[in-house]
Design a protein around this nucleic acid. Structure first.
Length: 418
RNA sequence: GCGGGCUUAGCUCAGUUGGGUAGAGCGCCAGAUUGUGGCUUUGGAGGUCGGGGGUUCGAGACCCCUAGCUCGCCCCA
């Protein structure tokens, strides 16, 4: 039997796993700097949550969800995204029941599931980190989520990314704009691609960010949301731009940016990287002022983003080459007979003093142990040889300089080598 | 879900119009070095040629089916 990981899933093997660890540590670190709290929600939820939250007409819900019935006959879904779950959780535990309640959540390396055709940067199980700020209507909250994301990318040494910014208006202004847009697209139906004719029925806003050149010509002349904003919408958008300028964050207003989830309102944004293929979005997010009420909670403004970890890993590997295993502090090479007690004592002593220690587990030759130490990039090797051991001593070798010195076992077991 | 390309050792790949026990580099293991790594050198292990079926005296190569990866579309992180 030839067993393989399911299509669209991937094993994360060392040394790549060290890159994941680094990303997770950076995200945790940035979250600490911003004062965000971690939230973890179940990997599966009642499918009704996503149908109501993400939108039944969206592709994510209508075609891409992993659905199953549990033994009690409930229809469950592996989560395709996290915003709906976070909102569900906040409502369920009354975290935003009071006026003025504010929650700043983040999540890290959280697995998501979508049944799609795999491609570079697109898998069926993939991982996201992201933030959700619940309870703040101010553009300051929008800015904070963007700044959070950018802080993560900056700390990882990113250069080639672009922040695309747009607004979709609030419910009233968007509805008006949307009907004008649909009317305009109907007038130009013949010029649209087949995909966009279908989009016009399912999700007309998405015609605007079609990659088809003919569609793009139509989209360029389409009614713009920017001309239909009400005062509140445009104030919000203008204020956000001022804040971004003040924060020194470069952006590009992209009127065709609409995003695929139904719950967005006002601000939407994407960070894209030219180092990715056609799946070029590193992170996407926006404001969803209507979602919490729609899922049965109090009317509460909210904003957040989700970022793909696999895509980040792809870009990082392009930037710095393959990941490497971090060096260890000390390798203990054993040459003497009956030295196991000494070996174990030394190893635990040095570990307790805070340095990393490894040693051979296969009874290999001295030469093989030294080669092993070299490949592990160990800074020091502690050699337990029979002659020294008879005198209660061991040899410490500095692998960079090649220098060696002999020292008592008792002293060696307290070594701080890092 | 649609269209194109690819799949040979752990990794990167070669394999001529079908012809003999399938190759290279790197990596891995061991010896040269009788208690000491990197460099060098010698040797060794490792392959159902993605899987199944077919054509043929003969298939890694040709045909069909299938799986996976990949590029674009769709969708989106």
């Amino acid at each position: 039997m030839n067993l393989k990981a399911p299509r669209g899933t991937k094993d994360i093997l060392p040394p790549e796993s060290y890159l994941w660890l680094e990303i997770e540590q950076v995200v945790d670190d940035v979250a600490r700097l911003f004062g965000f709290d971690e939230i973890r929600t179940p990997i599966f939820e009642s499918s009704a949550l996503f149908k109501r939250g993400v939108g039944e007409t969206s592709d994510i819900v209508s075609k891409e969800m992993y659905l199953f019935s549990d033994k009690g006959g409930e229809e469950m879904a592996l989560r395709p995204e996290l915003t709906a779950s976070v909102v569900r959780s906040a409502i369920e535990h009354n975290l935003i029941s009071q006026q003025g309640a504010l929650q700043r959540f983040y999540y890290n390396s959280a697995p998501m599931f979508r049944y799609e055709r795999p491609q570079m940067g697109r898998q069926r199980q993939f991982h996201q980190f992201g933030v959700e700020v619940l309870g703040a209507a101010s553009p300051l909250a929008d800015l904070q989520t963007i700044a959070f994301g950018i802080a993560v990318y900056n700390r990882l040494g990113f250069k080639n990314f672009l922040l695309k910014l747009n607004t979709l208006g609030s419910e009233g202004s968007r509805t008006k704009w949307r009907s004008e847009l649909v009317a305009y697209l109907r007038d130009n139906l013949d010029a649209l691609s087949d995909d966009s004719k279908r989009r016009l029925e399912d999700n007309p806003l998405r015609v605007l960010d079609s990659k088809n050149p003919a569609d793009q010509v139509i989209a360029a002349k389409a009614p713009s949301i920017l001309d239909h904003l009400d005062t509140g919408d445009s104030d919000h958008f203008e204020e956000l731009k001022v804040l971004l300028d003040a924060a020194g964050i470069k952006y590009e207003v992209t009127p065709t940016l609409v995003r695929g989830l139904d719950y967005y309102s006002r601000t939407v944004y994407e960070l894209t990287s030219s180092d990715l293929g056609s799946q070029d979005a590193l992170c996407g997010g926006g404001r969803y002022d209507g979602l919490i009420k729609q899922l049965g909670g109090p009317e509460t403004p909210a904003v957040g983003f989700a970022a793909g970890v696999e895509r980040l890993v792809i870009v990082l590997q392009k930037m710095r080459g393959a990941a490497e295993r971090p060096a260890i502090d000390c390798y203990i090479a054993v040459q003497a007979e009956n030295a196991r007690k000494t070996l174990i004592d030394l190893a635990s002593g040095i570990r307790n003093a805070g340095s990393s220690v490894m040693y051979d587990l296969q009874g290999r030759s001295m030469k093989a142990q030294m080669r092993d130490a070299d490949r592990l990039k160990s800074r020091f090797v502690l050699i337990i040889g029979s002659d020294e051991l008879a005198r209660g001593e061991v040899t410490l070798k500095n692998m960079q300089t090649g220098e060696q010195r002999v020292l008592p076992v008792a002293e060696a077991s307290n070594l701080k080598l890092s």
